[in-house]
Simulated assay, not measured.
Amino acid sequence: MSLIKEPKGIDFVIESKPLSDTERKEISEYIKQQKLKKKVTTRASKIKTALKTHV
C-alpha cells in the first residue's frame, strides 16, 4: 500500500463506519488464515533452500 500525499490546501478526511461484531470476527478470522498460509509457505521455502544447499 502506498501513501497518498495531500495537495497543498486540501485535506483528505476519511470516515469509516463502525464494524459490527460479526464483521470484526470475519476480518479477524481472515487475517489468521492469511498468517497461517504465509507461515506454511515460509517454512516450505526454508526447507527447500536448506535441501538445495546441502546437496
Rank of each mutant, 00 (worst) to 15 (best):
K5V: 14
S20N: 11
K35P: 01
F12T: 06
K32G: 07
Y30C: 08
A44R: 00
F12K: 01
I27D: 10
K39M: 05
L3K: 05
K37V: 10
I47G: 02
I4C: 07
I27H: 13
T49H: 04
T49W: 00
P7I: 02
K48S: 03
K17Y: 12
V55H: 06
S20V: 06
G9F: 07
K39C: 03
I10P: 02
D21S: 14
V13I: 15
R24N: 06
K48V: 00
K8F: 08
T42S: 12
I14P: 01
V13K: 15
M1V: 11
L3S: 09
E29K: 09
M1R: 04
A44Q: 06
E15M: 09
K5I: 12
L51T: 02
I31Y: 04
S20A: 07
K38L: 11
Y30E: 13
V55F: 12
H54W: 05
A44F: 00
I47E: 02
I31W: 04
M1P: 14
S2D: 05
E15L: 11
K37Y: 10
E15D: 09
E6F: 03
S20R: 03
S16E: 13
H54N: 11
I27P: 00
K46M: 04
E23V: 02
K39T: 09
Q34T: 03
K35H: 12
T42D: 13
I47P: 00
L19T: 03
A44N: 03
T22F: 11
K52C: 00
L3F: 07
T22Y: 10
E26N: 15
K46A: 02
A50H: 02
K17G: 05
D11K: 12
A44P: 00
K35Q: 15
L36F: 05
K46F: 01
S16L: 11
E29V: 08
V55S: 11
Y30Q: 13
R24V: 04
P7V: 03
P18L: 06
S45Y: 08
K48F: 01
K39W: 08
Q34D: 14
K46V: 00
T22S: 14
T49S: 13
V40G: 01
L19C: 07
T41I: 14
K37R: 06
K35E: 15
T41V: 10
S2V: 04
L19E: 11
K32S: 10
T41C: 07
E26G: 13
K52F: 02
D21E: 15
K32H: 09
L19A: 07
S16I: 07
K32Y: 06
E23I: 02
I14Q: 10
K37D: 14
Q33L: 15
A44Y: 01
S28Y: 14
S16T: 12
V55K: 08
V40W: 05
E23H: 04
K25C: 09
E26Y: 08
E23N: 04
R24F: 15
K32E: 08
S16A: 13
V13L: 12
T49V: 02
E26C: 07
K39E: 15
R43Q: 10
R24K: 11
K37H: 09
E29P: 01
